[in-house]
Structure formats: structure tokens, C-alpha cells
Design a binder for these strands. Sequence first.
RNA 1: GCCCACAUAGCUCAGUCGGUAGAGCACAUUCUUGGUAAGAAUGGGGUCAUCGGUUCGAAUCCGAUUGUGGGCUCCA
Length: 578
Amino acid sequence: MNKQDNLEIMRHSASHVMAGAILSMFPGARFGIGPAIEDGFYYDFDLPRPLTPEDLPVIEANMKEIVGADLPFERREIGKSEAKQVFASQPYKLELLEEIPDDKVGVYRQGGFVDLCRGPHVGSTGDVKAFKLTSIAGAYWRGDEHNAMLQRIYGVAFNSQKELDEHLAQLEEAKKRDHRKLGKELEIFIFDDLVGPGLPLWLPRGGAMIEEIEKLAKEMEFKHGYVRVRTPHISKEDLFKQSGHLPYYAESMYPPMELEGVRYYLKPMNCPMHHRIFASKMRSYRDLPLRLAEYGACYRYEKSGELFGVMRTRSMIMNDSHIYCTEGQFEQEFTGVIFLYLEYFKIFGIKEYIMRLSTHHPSGLGKKYVDNQSLWLKTEDMVRKAMNDNNIPFHEVADEAAFYGPKIDVQIKSAVGREFTLATNQVDFAQSINCDLKFINKDGQEERPLIIHRAPLSTHERLIGFLLEHYAGAFPAWLAPVQVKIIPVSDRHNEHATKVAVALKGHAIRAEVDDRSERMNQKIRQAQLEKVPYMVVIGDKETADNSVSVRRRSGEQLPAQPLAAFIDGLTEEISNRR
RNA sequence: GCCCACAUAGCUCAGUCGGUAGAGCACAUUCUUGGUAAGAAUGGGGUCAUCGGUUCGAAUCCGAUUGUGGGCUCCA
């Protein structure tokens, strides 16, 4: 048994200790489940009153007493009928019992607390080491929103106080790069009460980043044979009826607006409109693959509790494209998209991600998923083969697919630990049928195209949220909202500093002059806090010979150089996106 | 949407037992004109999220609403 397993067992035991503490405080408590999780554990309880943060230290103190008492964890195997007696007053445990196929079940006891549990556990409560209760939260019984809401207590646990302290310090550190904090501090975006929740306003600095990202996407997509289209933000209801979205998606759509007896919806995705463009004329196999690209603004009515800064919003601008291709072209197109991801990730230095193949689950056919199992199996195999043939690592998760087909999602974690899908690459075998899309094949016969939905650069919202955390706000020069801060040493240098700014802007470099009557040190400090990649100090010397004294964000100071040389160097750095 | 918590100046936050508000930063003005991470003084700025209730009196207690946060559910 390795160290990791031991730690997991200890965390699981910590959850039992916590349950024991809860039982002593609330004798009528009903217990859900209490597993070990990454860094710690949780336990779900059904209690006579809501817990508040003030309860946590009390529960913790109680747990420490149980740990101090060093009570043994006693395991017993008992028959199911006996177990039903033991847990007669524990409805959640009885529900779990019903689903265990074996005749015998394991129960663990420490002190007065008995739990239905497969184990294993540490020897005694004294083996539970450094822990801290971190938060209380609501959680549906068995994760189903139709079930009762239980109270969950989260805790972290480690083998030593030192490791625990390090972990807590790390969490504090991570909070500093939370995109919500940085987005406000660096003036990238805001949310305004009058505009509405989940509807970000991009400030000029965020706007500059969006321009750069779109420029990148347009270059890459042009290079890879995409053509750009533009589509409206709203359409008639009929469009979404035809595409098949309405029954699956209506809940996440802003309610329709009705004009002259016609219902219109804000679009939650761009595909149906792109499909209309595909269908706008007779297509030949010679036209395929057809790759339609657009930065499309979509609106989704996400439930209020699901919003999360700019990572999860109600309005979003998607790096969208739909690739219409033949079955024979599929693998090349699909892997082409994956390679496009990798090209982007290299530019951004993104290394910590997981590619996830999301497949259907037979139980959802006709409900969550289009009811055509043979096409599901076939396209899932196509994706697996495309990934394997190109040696691209991925892991597979059932029951996570889109309603129209399997997909490869790129999963990333936010600074505060929440997981998100950044990019997505989806197969769609359903909409070409729903939308009656066809092309004429070599034999002169009508055939359905396969569709690939892809968004390697996610949405502007989620990508910029991610990049804020990824770079901790210190963007590379090409992406930085302000690339150069020009710092006059004293007011008499403002005039020349402005000339330098004009020269930089003439070369499409985003430069700002800090012409406040402040000391140079203060201006440098300000530029550092704004995480501007280059600071250019202008004093007597520089004014006299049109040179620049350059300081990097790292604090490194470059030797004095002619303004023209600085412009050349920076232009090169920016155009290569280094 | 659900459970819990929170909401005080543009930002970050104090505000004790209920007696009509304070700091730092930012902003404005003045002085200072400086060489690689904070020069100084003065000043303006708040219906204490909103609405209602309790009270002689509410930033403070209670309720509702809105927003935010931690989760659950759900997702680019």
C-alpha cells in the first residue's frame, strides 16, 4: 500500500471522526455519505438546524477530542437484515443498503458512531492527523436536484501540521490569481448591476485583449482553410425547432420575444445559423470540407448559482466554427482541429490540461441524447481512432457527450480549483439530418455531411478568465493591454515622452504616458502593479539623443538604446507572440 | 434554481452594548521636478445595496428583494 492510499484512508477516517462529532452535537442527525476527496474529505448530514460558520470551530474541537481519545475503528461484517436494524433510524443508509447486492455488509464503529462502510480505515482515531474544516455547503442527496438538500462540511487533512499549513498557504496564494480579483484590479472587465448578472462589460484593456485574440484566431483559421461568416444574435423559434435544440436546450435559453405573432430567441449557439449558410446552395463533395468560422455572440440563461466571474457567463463570444465534411474526411478534419488546439496551447504555454473524450450512455438515448445508438458507437470509434492514431493522450468519460454526438473537451482548472471545459471539439451526426443538410457525392447521390463543432479558443470570456489566472495577470507583450508605459522623469520631459508614445503607436504598439506630477519611482511602481511588460524612462539624456531607457516587468534593466532599435525589437517580439 | 454566508466612499476594509460614520489607496488643488517599486499638504466624496418592520432612535435587530461568495446541480 503506497503513501497516497494511506493518506486517502486517513482522510476517509477523518470524515468518520467528523460524523462522530456531529452525532454527539446533534443526536438526531441523519447521515449521508462521507468520502475522501482531493486534499481532504466531506460528509453530508441531515440536521435539525442549518449550520453556520461559527459551528465549524466547535465541531473541530469535538473532533480533536475524539482523536485525543484514540478510539479504535472496529470493523464488523453483518447480515443485511441486521444492518437494517442497526440503521433503522437512518433513511439514507437504508437507501444505500438496498442497493448493495451482497448479503453481508461492512460496518465500522468508533465510540458511539456506527457507519455503513466498506473501509478500510486507520487503526484508531488517534491516527487521524492534521485537519481543518474549511466550509459548509448545500449538496443534494446523491447529487440529484430532485432529492433533499443535505448540509455538507468540507475539510482538508494531511499527515502533518506542516503539510496542512503549506496547503492552506497555497490556497491563499491561488486566491491572488483569481481572475475575478485580477480582472477588477487590472481593469479588464466589470459586472454592473444595471446590466445584469453574468453579463460582463469589457473595459478598454479587456477590449485590447479581445482584439489580439481575434487577430490570432483569424490568422490561424485563414491559414487552415476556414472562411469567415457573420450571423445575427436572434432568430425565429423555427430555426431552433428544426435544429433540434429547443427540446434539449429551452431551459438554458432566454425566454422568447414575440413580435407580430412570431417568436424570436436570442441564440444560445451559432450552429443552426451556420447550417442555414451551408444549406443556402447546392453543395458538391468538391466543396467539402467547408469550414465556416465566426466569433459569434451567444446568450444562455445559466442558473444564477452557476455564474462564476467571467468563466461562466450569460453572454459569451465564441471562437466558433462548423466543419462540414464527408465520412472519409472526418479523421483528418477532426485531428486537424486537435492539432490546431495544440498550436494555440503552445503559443500560450498551456500545459496543464486534460483531453477528455465524452461519450453517450445508453440510458440517455432519446432523452439527453439523439436516439440512434449505432451512429453513436460508430462516431465514438471514429474519434477514438483519430486520437489513438495520432498518439494524443486522452481519457474517456461516459455520459458527458453533447446531445448530437461525442466530443473531445479540454479540461482546465481555475485558480480556486473549479474545473472547466476550455476548448471543445464535437462530432455531430444529428443536425445534418434535422436540418436536412446534404451534398451530392461522386456518384451523383445525395449524402449527409458530418459536422464538427469546434471552439479551440473557447469563448472570449472563459479564455481571458483562464489566461488571467494562467499568467497571473502578467501577459506576454503581444497580449498585454498596455505594452509600454512611458515614464517621464519630470514634467519637462512630458512633451518628448508624448512624442515617443506617438512613435510607438505609429508602429501599432500600445503605449501610455504617465504624465502625472509624481516622482519617477511612483510611476514605476504603478506600472509594475499594472504588470506592464515594458517601462520606458524618458529624462534629459533620452530627450537629447532620442534614446530610451528600458525596464522590463521582471525588474531587469536593458542598456540604453535608440528608440528605433527598441521599436524594432518589440515589434519582432509582438509579431512572433513570444 | 437549491443550501449557507456576506453587502459601509471609485477600490480594500474598520465601525464595541442600537444614539444619524472612519482609515489607507484612488481622485482634485497646491507645493515639490525627482533616474528605475510609494515626496508632502489641503480638499471633495457615503440616503451604510434596495424596500418594509421593531424602536424615542437602526449601518447595527427582524423580514423580503437584488447582487456577490462557498458548494450542489448544470456548462464554452
